[in-house]
């Protein structure tokens, strides 16, 4: 529920009226079906190809088992995971910190149009690129290592959090704000006791969500040299060390699930 709201979906409508046959919509369905068939053919998606893949897949899976538990490998993995967590924590922290002012600037009900449009364009730009792509640029600019990953994830965090924060502010109930303004409160005080209480819970919600998402991505930026477990994973993969790949995969999944639990808890506290 919180997540639905965090990503801006409307609440499900309680519509019960069965619509009469809607021809334009039906045509759209048919069009979509034809498109799917056409697109699949251009991508060389065929049963033969899938059939060829299945034994390959079985072979692949067989080589994954048992997971590699050599001490050296585990230690290497632990280092990588720690670095991924560090990247996630720092990028979430600084990303959110920078998103607060940016989101405020992007809120159309508080700022003049030229300010909010500039801020919105900037967040749209930040949001457009997958963190791994942004990481490529930072690796070039500041070299291999965790910092490139952190900066890449900060960019992504700002793209999402600023947008959601701005939307939360735009949905603020202005009657409540006006009532606070009518007491003679300063702008800062109106912000603190009129606007923040209305957006705080949602904000905590999507910040927790972002921590989650940054952790997932922090395991991937290593593929392009952005630090974290991704480097070890990709190297093992390219060397066909599939048993070690499997160990790392299990660890990543475990960490992601734990972080999901943490993020649920955070949301509960700040409800």
């Amino acid at each position: 529920m919180t997540e639905r709201r965090a990503i801006g979906l409307p609440p499900p409508a309680g519509r019960t009226l069965a619509l009469p046959v809607n021809w334009p919509r039906r045509l759209a369905y048919i069009g979509l079906a034809f498109y799917a068939i056409y697109a699949a053919s251009t991508l060389d998606v065929s049963l033969a190809r899938i059939a060829r893949g299945l034994p390959q897949g079985a072979h692949f899976l067989a080589r994954m088992w048992p997971p590699n538990t050599e001490a050296i490998k585990l230690d290497l993995m632990r280092q990588g995971l720690m670095e991924s967590i560090e990247i996630a924590v720092l990028s979430t922290f600084f990303g959110i910190l920078l998103s607060l002012p940016l989101g405020l600037l992007a809120a159309r009900n508080l700022m003049p149009p030229w300010v909010s449009w500039t801020a919105r364009t900037l967040t749209a730009l930040f949001r457009s690129f997958n963190s791994v792509i942004v990481a490529i640029l930072f690796v070039k600019a500041i070299g291999f290592g965790a910092l490139a990953g952190i900066l890449a994830l900060i960019v992504g965090t700002m793209g999402f959090i600023s947008k959601l924060f701005a939307e939360a502010i735009e949905e603020v109930d202005l009657k409540q704000v006006e009532a606070v303004r009518a007491t003679g409160a300063s702008f800062a005080n109106v912000l603190i006791m009129g606007i923040l209480p209305q957006v705080m819970a949602r904000f905590a919600g999507f910040s927790a969500y972002q921590l989650d998402s940054n952790l997932r991505n922090s395991t991937m930026v290593g593929i392009v040299g952005g630090g974290g477990i991704g480097a070890a994973l990709f190297t093992a993969y390219q060397r066909f060390d599939y048993d070690y790949v499997f160990t790392i995969l299990l660890a990543i999944i475990a960490i992601v699930m734990v972080s999901e639990l943490v993020s649920v808890q955070i949301r509960k506290i700040f409800q």
Binding site: D173, K175, Q176, E178, A179, T183, G184, A185, G194
Partner: peptide
């Protein structure tokens, strides 16, 4: 603002800050 604080206002309903 200094003038406003000398003037109290009771609004229409739903003017309390709901989450406070």
């Amino acid at each position: 603002r200094e003038m406003r604080r000398r003037i109290g206002m009771v609004h229409q309903e739903y003017s309390l800050v709901e989450r406070l």
